[in-house]
Structures are given as C-alpha cells and as structure tokens.
C-alpha cells in the first residue's frame, strides 16, 4: 500500500524535475551541438548527441570573429551604464528622501512620468537626438541615455526613507559636511541594496540588444549580443559554430548568475515592489 504522503511528495518532486529539465535542456542542447563534429550536423542518421566532442569548434568560432573586441565593448557599455545608474540613483534617491526643497514634488513626478514611458516606444526620437549630438557609434551614445534609472531612484529613496536619521545627525554634530554624511554614513548602509540593484542593472545592460542595435552600426563598436547576431548571418547553416559562439557569449553570464543567485533573486523581488 502506497503511503499517500509519500505519493504526493513524489508527485511534487516529479513535476519540479520536469520544470527544471525544461529550463536546462536548451542549454544542454547548445553544448551538445557546439561540440558536434562537422559531419554530424547535417546528417539525419547521426545521433542527436555527438559521438565525440569536438572542442576545437569553440576555438574556431572565437577566431572567426572579433569576440575579444565585442567583449571589451560589452564591458565598457555595461559597466559604464551600471555605475552611472547606481550613482545617479543613489544621489537622487537620497535627496528625495532626506531633504525638503522647492519643487520637490514636481521633480519627483517628472521622474515618475519618465518611468511610464517604455524606452522602446521612443527609440526613433532617441536616435535622432543622439545623431544631433554626433553620438551614434560612440561609447557615450551607448552609455549616457541608459544612465538615468527611475527604478533605482525609487529603490534607494525607499531605502533611505527607512534609514535611521540619528546616524546623520550624530555625524553633523561632529562637524561632518552633508556630502560626507551621504558618502560615509548612508551609502555604506545601502551596500546590500546597491549589490542587488547593481547586479540586476548590469545583467540588463549586458543583455540589452535593441538599444545597441540602433545606436551602433560598425563591427568594431558592436557589443557581444550584436556581434553574435552578425555571426549567425555569416555561418547560417554551421549550427555547431553558431552554438559554439552562443556558448562563448552565454557561459560567462551563467557563471555570474550561479555565483550571484541570491542577489539576483533579491533584485528581481525588489524591482517588483515599488
């Protein structure tokens, strides 16, 4: 006789296992296809899993396109935009939480309205503005439009509203300047939330495809995602090379995701509670 408690647990595990399998299988397929020998990709009689692993495919893919340069561009764009988002959001969030000043509400609503404009609906005028600045195909053209983060500003404002104000008072009595109170008293307090917001913002910038696509159109300025889509057009039926290229682009982020899973989950949750 089957224990009903055991049976229901077995059912939960089975369903969860299926869900995890659905998530992970495409990545396994990528790896299997990436290391397939050339003769086995366009052969209907070949087995689905490669008979032996052709690790050289990955080196071949790396050498077929300027992946090094694209990685550098992705790093400059993502790090620049993320640091900018953290800095501007920290400053604005702190000011909205800690100070009273004329026009505060109107300025806050201006930010709120900015949040209501999905960036993708205004891509055409944004590119026109960047063209007026002669910023197309430049790092500043990639980075600067992405620096303001309404989400970051709200998160940090919420955090500083709940931060103990006595800490700042104590420092002020000791003669600390406002700037010092901000940078040495309150910013260190916000470190965990900076980490959670920073990792989510970094991943979003790193994975941003539409924006670089419309701002940059030279191979030397392409970010990794764009480069990968160009690569696909050049090697359209060499599935093993395309999957090797995808592996090159995906693997580093997979490592980041595993290492920072706690902050990522916290960031996703925080991002939804505004």
């Amino acid at each position: 006789m089957l224990n009903p408690r055991f049976a229901s647990r077995a059912l939960v595990y089975t369903l969860l296992a299926i869900a995890v399998l659905v998530v992970v299988f495409p990545l396994v397929w990528m790896l299997g296809t990436a290391v397939k020998p050339n003769g086995q990709i366009l052969d209907l009689n070949a087995s689905l899993w490669p008979s032996h692993f052709e690790w050289g495919n990955i080196a071949r893919a790396w050498n077929s396109a300027p992946f090094g340069r694209w990685t550098l561009n992705s790093v400059i764009f993502s790090v620049g935009a993320t640091l900018g988002q953290i800095l501007t959001s920290l400053l604005a969030g702190y000011a909205f939480a800690m100070f009273d000043f004329r026009g505060k509400n109107i300025l806050f609503y201006a930010l709120l309205c900015g949040l209501m404009v999905p960036f993708s609906t205004v891509i055409v005028p944004v590119v026109q503005i960047l063209a007026d600045f002669h910023w197309l195909n430049t790092y500043q053209g990639l980075i600067v439009p992405n620096i303001a983060s309404a989400l970051g500003t709200f998160l940090f404002r919420q955090f500083f509203l709940g931060a103990p104000y006595q800490l700042g008072e104590a420092a002020r009595i000791d003669g600390a300047s406002e700037l010092h109170v901000f940078s040495s008293v309150y910013v260190p307090l916000a470190r965990p939330i900076i980490a959670a917001f920073g990792i989510i913002a970094f991943l979003q910038n790193w994975n941003n495809f539409l924006f670089p696509l419309i701002v940059v159109n030279t191979t030397s300025m392409d970010v990794l995602s764009q480069g990968l889509s160009v690569f696909q057009n050049q090697f359209s039926s060499s599935y093993n090379l395309i999957m090797s290229a995808a592996l090159i682009v995906i693997a580093p982020i997979l490592i980041v995701a595993v290492a920072a899973q706690r902050q990522i989950i916290e960031g996703i949750t925080l991002g939804a509670i505004q």
Partner: peptide, 15 residues
C-alpha cells in the same frame, strides 16, 4: 528558474 531570465537573449534565441 532565473537562468533563462539573465542569459543574453540573442544567445538563447539562437538555441
């Protein structure tokens, strides 16, 4: 479950 969410979508779309 966060893996597909944070992977570069060009890479996963190619898969």
């Amino acid at each position: 479950f966060i893996i597909p969410l944070v992977m570069p979508s060009v890479g996963t779309a190619l898969i």
